[in-house]
Amino acid sequence: MTRTSGTRAATTGAGMADPTTWTSVWAGLGVVAGALVLGLVLAWFDAVARAGVRVGSRAVLVPAAAAPVREGMRLLLGQRRTTVAPDRLLRTLAVCAVPVLALTSAAVLPLGGHSVVSTSADLVWFNAAEALLWVAVWMLGWAPNAVHSLVGAYRFLAQGLAYELPLMFAIITVGVGAGSLRATDVVAAQAGGAWFVWTMPVALLVFLLGAAAFTFWGPFGAPAARDIAEGVLSELAGLDRLLVELGRAVFLGVASATAAAWFLGAEDGPVLPGAWWYAIKTLAVMAFLVGVGRRLPLVRPERFADIAWMVLLPLTILQTAVVAVLVLGGFYG
């Protein structure tokens, strides 16, 4: 390693230290608001992509763009429902955990050299929030005491076993390249156009694939697929469903912004102000994710497991090795 962590760590305080309580509260609220906006934008992209519109056909574009708000209101007004002999405690926990975990993952988003929560292991923070989703989704499927719901829960875990290791290697690659697990350090390491995507394209793709898989979205929607009548979502209505759907959208939106920060250098770019660059990159990642994801058919977990373990895992390990060699050669400065 040619670099010490000392200079970078200076950009943010240690731990969760913001000088005053009020600053922390405002920062926290800012993260919640920002994450909700990310989720909403992602949902807009998704609705437009689902409608399958070409750019310019306004007749479909406008109603599609209104869809996320409409669906949200519909669920907000709708009745909640229950099943015979459910595990109410676990259901409540799961329904709340999905959006809370999505917001938690947003806490380590780097913005202007800071993040609301800055630990010396932000990358692992994001990973841990995503891993806790395993438990949340499994509880969601288990609690209603219904067959399709339970099958969905097991599908999610099977999918998790497939995507988790490649995703971890993708995240580790970022840490290796930056020489730090701190999100702000990762962004600082990419200053001046040295974006990680140039040397870690496989890691970026696997990261986005993992994001789609842990939010069981698009081609990785098997845990909530139509063949099991929405699986883990099949017994949810009203506010319960809204919270879970919101959590999924926010998580995917936050993951897009995270990808923009970890692989595309966040605010780094010429002429325009940094915030613009960050927004443009995030939108580009979302457009790419949704544009590709909504064109692909469903990938069943047993089909995906083969690909994940036989193709993606070796590829990501190779990616990490290449980056490690580059680090030893002083490529990242």
Binding site: V124, W125, N127, A128, A131, W134, V135
Partner: peptide, 22 residues
């Protein structure tokens, strides 16, 4: 302030419990 160890504990135990529950 042992961030890595703490987060790693959370990460690994979560996945471990999810497998165990299955």
């Amino acid at each position: 302030d042992l961030h890595y160890l703490g987060l790693l504990t959370i990460l690994m135990m979560t996945i471990e419990m999810a497998i165990m529950v299955v």
